[in-house]
Simulated scan of single mutants.
Amino acid sequence: MSDAGLLTLPDPADAGPAARPDAEPRLQAGGPREWRVSGDWTLLALRGRYETLRQRIAQAVADDAGALWDLREVGQLDTAGALTLWQGWGQKPPARLLWLPEHVTLFAQFMQPAALPRRKPGLGPGLERAGRRVLAFARHGVDIVTLTGRLLLDALLMLRRPSLIGWREISANVYRTGAQALPITALVGFLVGLTLSYLISRQLKTYGADIFVINILGLAVLRELGPLLAAIIVAGRSGSAMTAQIGVMRVTQELDALSVMGISHTVRLVAPKVVALAISLPLVALWTSALMLLGGMAAAGAQLKLDPAQFLHTLPSVVEPVNLWLGWAKSVLFGSLIALLACHFGLRVKPNTESLGQSVTQSVVTAITLVIVVDAIFAVLFSDVGV
C-alpha cells in the first residue's frame, strides 16, 4: 500500500523539550482515510511551524474532505493548537471528527460565529432597522402598561393599608421637583413671556389692536404655554434625576435587595414619585404662567405703553376660568406621565454605566415628546372650551 498521500512531519526531536505536534494518518481498507492527530499541540511545540502545519492539514482536507480526524491521542492542546487545526480545516469542523470532551471548549470559541443564524435575504437594512425600532417601541408600551397596572393595584393596597404610603418620600419629592424648580422656571417663564408679548405687540400695533395683547397672551399662557413649558423643564430636570436615581439603585443592586426583603418597587419608589410630581407640577405650572404674564405685562408696557393696572384688571374678564382649570388638569396628567416614564426607564437600566446614560437620555426625550403629543391632543379635544 503506497504512502504517497500520508501527512508527514519533521522529526519531533527538533522541537526541544516539548513534544512536537504529530499528525500520523493511516489508511483503512475499503474506506476513507483516517487522520490521527497526536503529540502536544501547544504554543511552545508549534513554534515556527504554524504555516507549515496549516498548509499540510488544508491539503489533507482538500484530498479527502470525508476523512475521519481522530484527536483522542493529542497530549496537550491550547488555543494556538486548536486555531491551527481550525484554520487548516477551513474554519469549519470536519464531517467526521473524534475528540475529547475537554477539546470542545477550545473549539467552541471558533464555532460561535458559524452558529449564528444567517440573515434572510429580502429585507433591506432600512426596513429591518425600522422593524426593530417598532418592536422596541411596542415592548416599551407593554412594559409601561404593565407598570401602570401594577401601580394601580398597589394604590388599592395602600388605600386599604395607609401605613404603606411613603409620606416622607412624597414630601421629599415634592420639595425636589417643585420648590427647587421655582428659580429656573421663573427665569425661563419671564423671558418667554417677555419675548412672546413683544412679538405680539409689534404685530397688533400695526393694526391698532393694542388691547388684544391681553386676550392673546392670557389665553395662550394659562391654557397652553404655561403648563407645557413647566412640564418640559421638569421633564429635563426632575425626570432625568428620577431615572438616574433608580438606575444607580439597579447598578448598586439595591433594587435586588428590596426584592429580597419583599418590598415592592412600585410602593417604595414609583408611587411616591408619581404622586409627588402630580402634585408639584400644577403648582410649578401656575408659577411659570404667572411669571410669563409678568414678563408679557412688562413688554406690553414698554412697547404699547399699556398700564400694568389695566393689564391686571382686564385679564380676568377676557380669559375664562375654565382655561385655568384646563391648564391645571393637563399639568396633573403631565406630572404623572413624566414620573411614570422616568421610573419605567430607571427600572430597565442594566447593571452598567453605559446603560444608565442611555436610559436617562431616553427618559428625557420620551417624556418631552409625549408631553407635546398629549398637549396637542388636549388642544384638539377642547378646542371649543373656554375660547
Rank of each mutant, 00 (worst) to 15 (best):
S201H: 01
K120H: 12
L116Y: 07
M297W: 00
F110A: 02
Q310P: 00
L44W: 10
A271N: 11
R237Q: 03
W89L: 01
G66T: 10
I214Q: 06
L71V: 05
S355D: 12
A138R: 10
A114K: 13
R118I: 07
L77S: 00
Q76E: 15
M1T: 14
A285P: 05
V174P: 04
L326K: 02
L291Y: 01
A231Q: 03
H103K: 09
L46P: 03
V213F: 02
A285H: 04
T369H: 08
A244D: 10
L326A: 09
E34R: 14
L191F: 03
A271I: 10
A278V: 04
V260E: 05
A45Q: 05
P162E: 06
V213W: 01
R348H: 10
Y207Q: 11
P113Y: 06
P94K: 04
W41T: 00
V145G: 09
G193S: 04
S264A: 13
T252R: 11
E169H: 09
V371F: 01
I279G: 01
V267I: 14
T105D: 14
S240Y: 04
G149Q: 11
Y175C: 09
G226F: 00
V284W: 02
G295M: 00
T288N: 09
A299C: 07
G239C: 07
S2N: 13
A300G: 06
A23Q: 03
R168W: 10
P227Y: 00
R150H: 12
V234C: 12
W89D: 03
A82V: 07
S2I: 09
I279Q: 06
A80Y: 08
K273L: 12
L291S: 00
Q59R: 15
T361F: 06
A271Y: 05
V142S: 07
A339I: 06
A290G: 12
A136V: 03
S238E: 08
L219A: 10
R348F: 00
G81V: 03
I216G: 02
G149D: 08
G166N: 14
V332Q: 02
F190E: 00
L182E: 09
L312W: 15
R56Q: 14
Q59V: 08
L6D: 13
R150L: 15
V74C: 09
M242L: 11
L228G: 08
S201D: 04
H140I: 15
G239E: 02
S264W: 04
P10S: 11
L219F: 12
G30Q: 10
Q91Y: 09
A299M: 06
